[in-house]
Amino acid sequence: MPDGRSAVKRRASLRLWLSGSWLALVALAALLAPWIAPHDPLAQDLFAGRLPPFFAAGADPAYLLGTDSLGRDVLSRIIHGARIALTVALMAGVATALLGSLLGLLAGYLRGWTDIVISRLVDIWMAFPPVLFAILLIAVIGTGLTSIIVAIVVIDWTRFCRVVRAEAMNQSKMDYVASATIAGQGRASILWREIGPNVLPTIAALLTLEMGIAVIVEAILSFVNLSISTDAPTWGGMIAEGRTSIHQAWWVLVFPLVVLFLTVLSFSQLGEGLKDRFDPVLR
């Protein structure tokens, strides 16, 4: 009686490979930053200011991607910036996912008053302009890495809450939930053991998107100088500095921008790729 259904193997798609490889590269750079960065990201050398990248005329091979107006190595700053970007992506992403998903699951499964309270809260929350909200929040609690993470969680939990609530509502209508009720399974147990695993692919896909968003938010806050100290190597801070000298040294702006772009794109593509691969229901 066993047929071919269990023998079906799916090949990892190209986008999973590409996005995974890029993120692995960024993660590796972040982990090994002190050892692989060719220069100190903070060391200034005014005699080596605005050196072009290796392929342009007048480049110094010691500074592969050139230097900024203070003579700091762009490559080293990008590598060290990956640490901050990934820390924010992971911490803010996971914390946002936990808070938003928990509230979304409760609202979608319990319905009734719980749902009304949580849903209205989400509606009110989403009416605030997010960037202004973040700036206001950081003005109150002060700058720093923790503040950025807190700001992202406080603003973005609604994104998870909405989607997870809808998905939990869908799953609650399935007969396996009715079956668990008939078996006498408690509500907390049904939510955690029966519905939870079925909402997990949605949460995972949102989480990867949220990590990309966290990287962008950190860059935006750096850009408006509300991230960590202006000296610290963050991608957003580098883009802000590069903007002022775009006509003299375009590479200071362009390289962190490309890295930021690829990282955010990879996060979202990774989510899609994982969803395709691990969702048995989609087949």
Binding site: M174, D175, Y176, A178, I182, G184, P197, N198, L200
Partner: peptide, 23 residues
């Protein structure tokens, strides 16, 4: 209802939806 839940069971119409796809 706990004692009743032990004595009465149900078989559902749609066996795809009544079996948890992740278990």
């Amino acid at each position: 209802l706990k004692p009743f839940r032990r004595k009465a069971q149900m078989i559902f119409q749609d066996p795809m939806s009544s079996l948890n796809p992740r278990h």
